[in-house]
Nucleic acid binder design. Sequence first.
DNA 1: GTCTATACTTCGATAGAC
DNA 2: GTCTATCGAAGTATAGAC
Lengths: 204, 204
Amino acid sequence: MTTAASPRRIGAESSRTRAQLLDAAELLLLEEGYAAVTSRRVAAKAGLKPQLVHYYFRTMDDLFLAVFRRGAEHNLERQARALASPKPLWALWDFNCDPRGTALTMEFTALANRRPTIRDEIANYAERFRHQQAEALVGVFRQYGIDTGELPPTAVLILMSSIPRILLIENALGMTTGHAETVALVERYLTRFEGDRPSEPSAV
Amino acid sequence: MTTAASPRRIGAESSRTRAQLLDAAELLLLEEGYAAVTSRRVAAKAGLKPQLVHYYFRTMDDLFLAVFRRGAEHNLERQARALASPKPLWALWDFNCDPRGTALTMEFTALANRRPTIRDEIANYAERFRHQQAEALVGVFRQYGIDTGELPPTAVLILMSSIPRILLIENALGMTTGHAETVALVERYLTRFEGDRPSEPSAV
DNA sequence: GTCTATACTTCGATAGAC
DNA sequence: GTCTATCGAAGTATAGAC
């Protein structure tokens, strides 16, 4: 399921080396951003030769997509579990506040806007992701008796995903003004609907 | 005021060519992201020779900083005007919703996290920017009689800047679910405090 | 499956002529 | 102020030996 048909050999998906390259690429993506994910640097981080990247992935876009897919499936499952938990709003909030996931999401989004090949798949996934959330939240809101005209579930979703992102970005720059207040504000709402934060912070 | 002392010649700040290079760099930054801003591509976009970039800016970091500074000063003034307008919350919201400014901010933020040389200046500016907002908003909230324990002005600032960003990002991916609802939600609040949106949308 | 070797491109940056 | 010329480093990607 790579980008294009090719006469070239491609390494098996089950390969241990391939997994190492994926790990290295993901780490680089997190630590230094998509621009730092080059075949040479990925290989160096994995302690391998640069040509192996092209043996296993042919193009850099294929590598990016492979990293993305590996995380995406896992993510949808985690989110489904969060939405099915006893306190879904809290679970969703904690899920969105995971810095690693948030950073990866932002990096892939930036990448999608620069690489046409990757764009479609990421946009498609993002829609599925959002849809999964929306569907669950409609039920939750009905159950809680929330007036969805006043507070539409889709708007809540956007708030719950945009806030952690900007907090993470600002934190990286050393900014913290208003962060505690914002988190407190959100969590006051969560508490109003679902009581205190679950003791086990949704170990997803 | 460049990064380092150097024996090399540097072109005058008043140069017309220099301004063209700045324009080209800013445009590239907006259209294709920071990774696309290379000396060769900037020069090509301006219809000039690549070496001129290094004549006027010595390093690429100097170029980035020059683009940033040119916009930053202008931005602080615009925001000051917005905050001094008769309906400051509406003005601030409209200001934050400007897609060009938002996109540039995001690009520079990403850049700051990858380039140590640039980082400090951007972080410093962001703090000043936020501080200017916070100071003004405290007065506004007092005037409107808003309970700042319930709704802290700094939290409102984070909401008002994070929401337009995620809407812009999602839009770029073709996602629109919940956008209208979120904007409507915010604007209901703005209307509650300041009445209808000012007819002249804060021509800043 | 991994290696050497290599082709070609683009990058940042500088020296020096005009 | 702008040009030609040029460096060395890093980028993607491929061919073919082992």
